[in-house]
Design a protein around this nucleic acid. Structure first.
Lengths: 232, 232
DNA sequence: CGCCAGTTTGACCAAGATCAACGCAAGTGG
DNA sequence: CCACTTGCGTTGATCTTGGTCAAACTGGCG
């Protein structure tokens, strides 16, 4: 029911053709290649901070490998994870004078970093690129709105089922999911507690809907049942 | 703690100067004036649908007067309100092939409607306008993420307090708020039930934090207390 | 082997949902 | 002008979901 977790990232147009944006066949390709030139690559260890709340957003990022969580802490320690990003996803494209969220590596990760100023110059030179970027952001916004509905109106089993299906859609995986994130990450993403996430997963397993060979691997045994739970 | 509810709308640059975007002093102004030419005005009665889920998004809108809710229904009737829009706000700028949300007039409202195709042509001609639009969308996204945190991690009193403060910030109103929307609308926006919203408002009133001369008017008597509750 | 972090499970609790009255003001029709 | 209806809003009693607290389990890893 989600459209998609979050935009696949502008850079991916390099690998696609004939998609809605129709960028590849329009000369914007050179510009996209230019992106790769202005970026620098860096490795992060598990839980390393990529940027912090309050930082000046003078660059944006693309996940090369690994996974990233974008999150925010409340004064009393409650945490909320706004989105996860996987290989190929771009994130951290922000316009406010300071970051409202921080970003951290879920496990070991490799990330490309692009300076914002140079990027905006490139975008200004290409209306098509600008449009593509705009569409990506609007897609992210639509996803955020679907996520809001989940947090505001769905039960715990509905949230977990939706989460598993979305994750499966997003990463090719037909039925064997490997979850790079901890139960705490999942809980903070779904607006639940660790214990509730565990319990729901266990009950899905009892019902034969999924299998959990180990904590970070989940196999979808009955997608239809999951989908039904996810709908309410 | 919200930055702002949702973008003030690109058209407002006509009335501002020296803001971050710095559009007014750059020649993009003519382009903005052009927006007004391609728009058509229409009145809606209370609860009228402005666009429906599944519609093709071939135009976007600006609220002239009144208020609009952007919402979505689940199969079993549960409703979620993603955002409210007031005079001056733009909404309905969407990129997917069909609308995921519907928009309805909260009370009687007057709305400008702009064709999408012509708009995109204008945007393509002005990188500055494109950038401004991008920033507006990114601001909306940031707001959506703050709202997610509220839905996922805040208690009922925290949500209501935050809602009241945001509304007060957004509409000049120093302390006398008039709520155009019903309790049901508020509940569906905050991810609560009507009864809980009522109870929380009543308890705020008992504590002297607010006054409720009538159901659609709320006076903030103690902003600091509200802010404290909102923080957690 | 034993420690440690993360996960799972159970017992209990509380915030908020649900269900049910009741209140109240704005129509509506006689 | 006054019953009567209707749509919201408010309040109370009760129930359920998911949170909290605590203990047991598991799989690395020194």
């Amino acid at each position: 029911m989600y459209v998609q977790f979050t935009g696949a990232g502008y850079c991916d147009v390099l690998d696609r053709s004939g998609s809605a944006g129709g960028l590849a066949q329009s000369g914007a390709l050179d510009v996209l290649v230019a992106f790769e030139r202005i970026g620098t690559r860096r490795s992060y260890a598990r839980n390393d901070e990529i940027f912090a709340e309050g930082d000046r957003p003078d660059c944006w990022f693309k996940v090369v490998s690994g996974a990233v969580r974008v999150c925010k802490l409340m004064a009393d320690g409650r945490r909320h994870i706004a989105e996860f990003h996987f290989a190929g996803d771009c994130f951290g494209f922000d316009s406010l004078p300071e970051r409202l969220f921080s970003a951290e590596a879920v496990g070991d990760a490799v990330i490309m970093r692009f300076p914002r100023r140079a990027t905006e110059r490139l975008i200004d030179e290409s209306p098509k690129l600008a449009r593509y970027l705009r569409e990506m952001t609007l897609r992210d916004l639509a996803n955020a709105q679907m996520h809001m509905m989940m947090l505001g109106r769905m039960s715990a089993p509905e949230r977990v089922a939706t989460f598993l299906l979305d994750l499966a859609d997003r990463r090719d995986a037909s039925c064997a999911l490997d979850l790079p994130m901890s139960r705490a990450d999942i809980a903070d993403y779904l607006g639940l507690t660790i214990e509730t996430v565990c319990r729901v997963l266990s009950s899905f397993k009892r019902d034969g809907i999924i299998d959990i060979p180990n904590a970070h691997r989940i196999e979808l045994r009955n997608r239809a049942a999951l989908a039904e739970i996810g709908e309410g």
